[in-house]
Design a protein around this nucleic acid. Structure first.
Lengths: 116, 116
DNA sequence: GTATAATATCAAAATATATAAATATTTTCA
DNA sequence: TGAAAATATTTATATATTTTGATATTATAC
């Protein structure tokens, strides 16, 4: 429970646990992006984006490269994207579950009240 | 950014972002477990375990089955384990990175001061 | 019905994270 | 040098999560 792997992994998942940071990572799928580009994609103000980037940086999820006054961000380990893909699959499964559940619920109700 | 997938995914990752909950999921790899069994594995008090389980339950990550007064928990979508596996791989890569980095740092230092 | 075992919920305090606005740093260019 | 652009950091406040201890619920056995 105090194993480093669990400390690391929980910190890591925590860093992914914010919509804005997921959008950032989504953008970085297309390769490196400047802070400006991310700002535009996120429609967030400068400070907020920079702070979200700091979270990802502190957890070593992204790396940076500076060119003049522009800072480019990129994902450090492409396996991150694999992780996001799996999460998306789970999301899809979950949606299907919910739909199935709702559909079944619908059927049961119509059975209970065949032609109210 | 307000896309449901990102809201869902961030909530989901947040739920994974706690060491105790990762231990719980680790235990559930071996199939369903009672709260008692989890309590012992976690070495945490009853209330805390129950609350961590509630988090996983609220995010639909686990399902339960009741038998008498005993409640058994299981992971809802086995793909969760795949996710944890990818996270572990990232952890390993990261370790290697760190080690490599430290090793290089060591080399550089010895080069700078060949035989102090 | 009462006691007991297993689990869940509640409530309060401690801690962590998020948000927003202001300020600081770094780099370039005139 | 000093102004401007891009990014980062700081600070304060708001909000959320964690933790602990107490209490509540549910099912079983007596």
């Amino acid at each position: 429970m105090q194993q480093p792997i669990h400390r690391f992994t929980s910190e890591f998942f925590k860093a992914l646990g914010h919509p804005a940071r997921l959008v950032i990572l989504g953008q970085l799928r297309g390769g490196e992006r400047s802070v400006q580009e991310l700002q535009q994609a996120l429609e967030m103000d400068q400070s907020s984006v920079s702070q979200q980037l700091a979270v990802l940086r502190n957890k070593n999820i992204v790396d940076t490269r500076k060119e003049g006054t522009t800072v480019y961000y990129r994902v450090r380990d492409p396996m991150i994207f694999q992780l996001l893909d799996v999460a998306r699959e789970i999301f899809n499964n979950h949606l299907i579950d919910t739909q199935t559940m709702l559909a079944q619920l619908g059927e049961e109700q119509s059975e209970a009240t065949p032609h109210a």
